[in-house]
Design a protein around this nucleic acid. Sequence first.
DNA 1: GTGAAAGCGCTAACAA
DNA 2: TTGTTAGCGCTTTCAC
Lengths: 348, 348
Amino acid sequence: MATIHDVARYAGVSVGTVSAVINGTGRVSPKLQKKVNEAIRALDYRPSHYARALKRQRTHSLAYLVPDVTNPGFSAILRSTTRIARQRHYTVFVFDTGGDPEAARESIERVVELRVDGVILSLTWDLARPELIDVLRKREIEVVGISGSRSIDSIDCFLWDEVNAGYTLACYLLRLGHRVLAFLHPADSESARRRLHGIRNAYEEAGIPVSYIHTYPVSGYSTKDAYEGTLQAISSAVPFSALIAFNDAFVTGATAALADQGLAIPEHVSVATFGNSHTAFSRPQITSMTYDYESVGARASQRLLDRIEKAYDSEPRCEYVSMELVVRPSCRAVSSAFIPPDERIPLL
Amino acid sequence: MATIHDVARYAGVSVGTVSAVINGTGRVSPKLQKKVNEAIRALDYRPSHYARALKRQRTHSLAYLVPDVTNPGFSAILRSTTRIARQRHYTVFVFDTGGDPEAARESIERVVELRVDGVILSLTWDLARPELIDVLRKREIEVVGISGSRSIDSIDCFLWDEVNAGYTLACYLLRLGHRVLAFLHPADSESARRRLHGIRNAYEEAGIPVSYIHTYPVSGYSTKDAYEGTLQAISSAVPFSALIAFNDAFVTGATAALADQGLAIPEHVSVATFGNSHTAFSRPQITSMTYDYESVGARASQRLLDRIEKAYDSEPRCEYVSMELVVRPSCRAVSSAFIPPDERIPLL
DNA sequence: GTGAAAGCGCTAACAA
DNA sequence: TTGTTAGCGCTTTCAC
């Protein structure tokens, strides 16, 4: 492959001049500029990114570390990251750790050898480990964390505002007249706790007893777990008019369980969830608090690049990204017969 | 960050010795090895991938070019690619072109500047352009193509065996007793043509008139297009016992249209499709010819790395990756009343 | 305006 | 066995 020397020789100038033309640095006479550009075209020359990086001590590259690119949220983040990176003339390496902490450690090693300028880190348990982040920070590699529930003090984090999401969704259901609520969620999820917190806030603000909120923790994260959890909820002593599922997998399980028990949505039970995987023609369509992964990915990578380019240098902080309520036909207004009159609040 | 010189100084040896220890090349006395390793640990030294690549003229990096990483198939391919790459000590850059030919061209430029050793190219219309591939090949960058319908002579391609997929699916339906078939597909799709070809093969092999196969081309690729196409098919003069949809989006549209017309699956119409996005609890579950994206991604990247490392150097050729029939309850055996007796073939 | 030359961090050939 | 050194391809002073 042609080098800058070849170009210089072909154009009959020095390498310094070629470099100046390529980078637009220094002053070069139009005549020589033309000769250089012709030489570049003739030899089909492309500067070596590697040699440049070595010299400049800046690689113009980013790394995205993630437990599973196959997850729609993570791939959406990757998508916007690569877009922003291209706009600002950076490239991005991807490391899919498969959720394996050992692979995560290995990936971090690679990342420092690659001398990337910055890292976008999925704040999942395998990656959000302070010792890993220290390895990066010690080497002055900028890091932003994204899309998890735990924040990390030493870096900028972009997290979902789960509390508000729970609050918003509960407000909506209360406005429809619902009071007795089932919340189906994984037993050990921090996000679930935050959402529940928001749901409770809504009840308290409306002056409705939080004891109307019934939680159904299930032990796993699978559709199957949710299916069984829903069967349990149905067979429990407490009849509920609305069910909030934890995520798309949960709502799939819940929907199936309700159908199998002959309960129609929304005639018998209103259903809402948190998540995005909605297909326009699936029946019934489920009201949902949705994530905007692409936008959070874009915000995080903008921030990362700003830090790298010293356009931003405030203390690291955590930003909460709001989720949006998308109303679909899975929730109906319930008749006043179900509501003690003194607790009624006006419909939207 | 510490350099190899720092390590040499700290250990009181020469850089050549340090290099030899790191790379396991040459003979170094155990005593010096120990000193060097201690120095490396003390200084927390990591060799610069960039300097190495510059010297070795091999970057140990791959690029994956794709129109949309958000597409589940493409992200699955990315996943297996990064896994194989890590195993063999390569890293991977991702370029998401957003389906924009201009972005594709730009990405190819970047890839050349990056001096990657190899490229995995999605064989979609924006990327599968000979002139782009020539840019790479001229610079001795290895290329494999993946997951498209058109093959390219100059590179190894890994394509779905659409003809056989159509054949297999049609055989299955014929065995169930179906004869009159509706095939709902995008008008201008090469894959659709291949699948239809396979379907016809099955009919011919079974000695059944191909005129029983009714095609319903629709102009777009969206769920909505499929929905409307299905309505048309239903209202056409020809009653069919089975419907084959082009992909997951199409089957979603078709299912909705059938439901809206009061047609039950599989009681009134049997439905099958090509694709993977099946959720265990969705009703009804659809029989499908499925793709194994991860395995095709792994095969393609293995091949790419073998070429890069000169472990493989046959002429470029095209491999057809078979799809698998997954039987679900959406297709039923039809009663002999629907079949002219002389055309009956034995059930599975 | 232009060219010569030092050096980014590393490897490998050669000397000692 | 170990050290010295010449580059890999580029950028960037600093003379001219």
